[in-house]
Structures are given as structure tokens and as C-alpha cells.
């Protein structure tokens, strides 16, 4: 490194003057370049190498695949994979199955996201009070979240099949065809399942936001004669707006990642493709049918859409 730059800067500069005394001599010069504890770089380097190999490189590779004619070849074989521009994107975007899967996920999000936000905020508000069994309730709500999807899918299959407990309890009101084999009800049932499974996490998120709402706000509102509902809408809801944005974005991203539930609950996206999610389609197209280039294009489109939706949420919540 060049030391002249530092020598010129140091004497007169305000920054140099404000620095502690130890900043003088041979050591500080190295420290200005490498930092005061350059060993820190050694501490983070395994993690940085890992990120480069497992995230950054595959991220770029995904985009690269989506612009090339990519196919699986025998390991070590030299094959030509020509650049094809937007060809993968056009073939994906003219495919009705792809549109169907995006429509399916839209149905999922329209049901799942508002349900998640409303239920987790209401339950978190109820939990955020003096309550004898508070820990019991919080634990109860969190248990589905820490349990494997595959395990709880087993119970839901048992509960919601044609002869399951839910239909037996509903008696003549039971839908026909039953929940998971009914093309109108299958996706809403999956949306309900995911909301139920994830709710505990979002409740904890809202609980920590509620801890930061100053109690005086409620006290002065009570003095002004505001009712509980009024307080909820004009104090609680605006005060946890940042948490709401996080819940909206995370619930949407979780929904866009949907794979296990349609794969198992509705045996691979049935009935008649009514629950095929984009990620399930990526698996079928990319890995089962051997078109990783089209699958990568679906992935890129999905991520662009999710980013767009997240920006809309942000504008909407920061509007006033």
C-alpha cells in the first residue's frame, strides 16, 4: 500500500486529531488499510467462501442457465450450450401450465396472506396481556411451526380425507368432492394449512413488536374515552406497521416457495393441476422432464414477481 496518502492526510485532518493516541506510528498505518483487527477477515472467510460457492455463484448460474439452451449431459462430456436470448422465457410465458401455476399461487396468496396477518396480530394482541398461562399458549401456537411439514401433512390427510374427522363432524355440510380432491377447495385448504403451520412464527414476530408500543399511548387513549376496538385500530395497528410489512413479505415468500404441501397433500399438484405451484412445476419441468433452462426461467420470473409484490406492500404501508 502507499503510505504517502496517509502521511499527507494525518497531521491536519480533523479525523486524525479525534483518533485515540494508539493510532500513531507503524501499527495504525496497517490498521487503516486492514482494520484494527485484521484477524476478523480470517474469522469471516470460511463463511464468505461458503456464501460465494453456495449462493453467489449459483445465483449467477441460475440467470445464465435461463438464457442458454441448457440440458443434462453425462458428467465430463463436452457439450455445446448455445446462448438463446429470451427463448426460454418466451416458451415459458406462452405455456398455459405456467400461467396456471402462477394463477394457483395467486389464489393461495390472496387467502393465506390476509389470514396470516389478521390471525397472528389478533392472537399476539390477546397474548400480550397479563395471562396466567401465557407460556402455555405461546408454546402451543409455536408447535406446528417447529414440526416438519411432512409430519403434519400426514395428520391433515387423515383429518381432511373423504371419510376424515372433519367431514364426519360436518355431516351433511361436508363438501363433495372432499377438500383435497375438489378443484375449487384444494388450494384454499392448502392456504389454510400453511397459515396454520406458520402462524406461531408470525405471532412471536408481532409479540416482540407489541412489547415496544409505549403503554402510555393506551392510558391516555383510555382517559380520552376510546374503546378497545378504537384503540386496536388507531394505536396497535399503526404502531406495528413495520412488523406488518415483515409479516407480509415473509408470508408471501413462504407462499411462493410452496412445494411440499401440493406434492404430498394433493399428490403432486392435483386435482387436475389446481394446486400445481411454480416450484412444483420447476421440479417437474427441470428435473423430471430434463428442461433445467425453462425451470430456471420460471425461477427468475417468480423472484421478479415476489420482489415486485414486496415493493407494492412497502409503498402501500408507507403511504401516509
Amino acid at each position: 500500500m502507499s503510505s504517502t496518502h496517509h502521511d499527507v492526510l494525518r497531521p491536519g485532518s480533523a479525523r486524525g486529531g479525534a483518533r485515540p493516541r494508539t493510532d500513531r506510528g507503524q501499527r495504525p498505518r496497517r490498521s487503516r488499510f486492514a482494520g484494527r483487527q485484521p484477524i476478523g477477515l480470517a474469522f469471516v472467510s470460511p463463511y464468505l467462501l461458503y456464501l460465494a460457492a453456495i449462493f453467489l455463484y449459483p445465483l449467477g448460474f441460475a440467470v445464465w442457465i435461463s438464457f442458454h439452451d441448457y440440458f443434462f449431459a453425462a458428467p465430463g462430456a463436452q457439450v455445446d450450450r448455445p446462448f438463446v436470448g429470451f427463448a426460454n422465457y418466451t416458451s415459458v410465458l406462452t405455456d398455459p401450465d405456467v400461467w396456471r401455476s402462477f394463477g394457483n399461487i395467486a389464489v393461495f396468496l390472496v387467502i393465506n396472506v390476509p389470514l396470516t396477518v389478521a390471525a397472528s396480530l389478533v392472537l399476539a394482541t390477546a397474548l400480550n396481556s397479563k395471562l396466567r398461562a401465557r407460556t402455555f399458549f405461546r408454546t402451543a401456537y409455536y408447535v406446528p411451526y417447529i414440526t416438519a411439514s411432512v409430519a403434519v401433512v400426514g395428520v391433515w390427510l387423515f383429518l381432511f380425507n373423504s371419510n376424515g374427522l372433519v367431514n364426519k363432524a360436518l355431516g351433511p355440510l361436508a363438501p363433495d368432492p372432499s377438500w383435497l380432491v375438489n378443484s375449487h377447495l384444494a388450494m384454499p385448504t392448502i392456504a389454510l394449512f400453511v397459515a396454520w403451520k406458520q402462524l406461531g412464527f408470525f405471532i412471536v414476530l408481532y409479540l416482540s413488536a407489541l412489547q415496544n408500543v409505549p403503554g402510555e399511548l393506551y392510558e391516555s387513549a383510555a382517559l380520552d374515552g376510546a374503546g378497545k376496538a378504537r384503540m386496536f385500530w388507531s394505536i396497535t395497528v399503526p404502531a406495528v406497521r413495520t412488523a406488518t410489512l415483515l409479516v407480509l413479505v415473509l408470508a408471501t415468500v413462504t407462499g411462493a416457495n410452496l412445494f411440499t404441501e401440493p406434492y404430498l397433500l394433493t399428490s403432486g399438484g392435483g386435482p387436475d393441476g389446481a394446486t400445481t405451484s411454480p416450484v412444483l412445476l420447476m421440479y417437474q419441468r427441470g428435473l423430471q422432464q430434463g428442461h433445467p433452462d425453462e425451470a430456471a426461467a420460471i425461477g427468475v420470473i417468480l423472484v421478479v414477481l415476489i420482489t415486485g409484490i414486496s415493493l407494492v406492500y412497502r409503498r402501500w404501508l408507507e403511504r401516509d
Binding site: V279, P292, A296, G299
Partner: peptide, 26 residues
């Protein structure tokens, strides 16, 4: 610790959080 590249490392950590797995699957 204070070391060169700390800021960009942290920015990278934040970026990783928003990269969804579905894009990396293939």
C-alpha cells in the same frame, strides 16, 4: 472486530436473506 471488508460482508449477509431457495434449486 474492525477489519477491511466488514461492511461489504454484512451487506452480503443481508442479501443472502432475501435470495429465495427456489431460484437456487436448479
Amino acid at each position: 472486530l474492525h477489519f477491511r471488508g466488514k461492511g461489504s460482508t454484512f451487506a452480503l449477509v443481508l442479501l443472502v436473506q432475501v435470495v429465495p431457495f427456489q431460484l437456487l434449486m436448479i
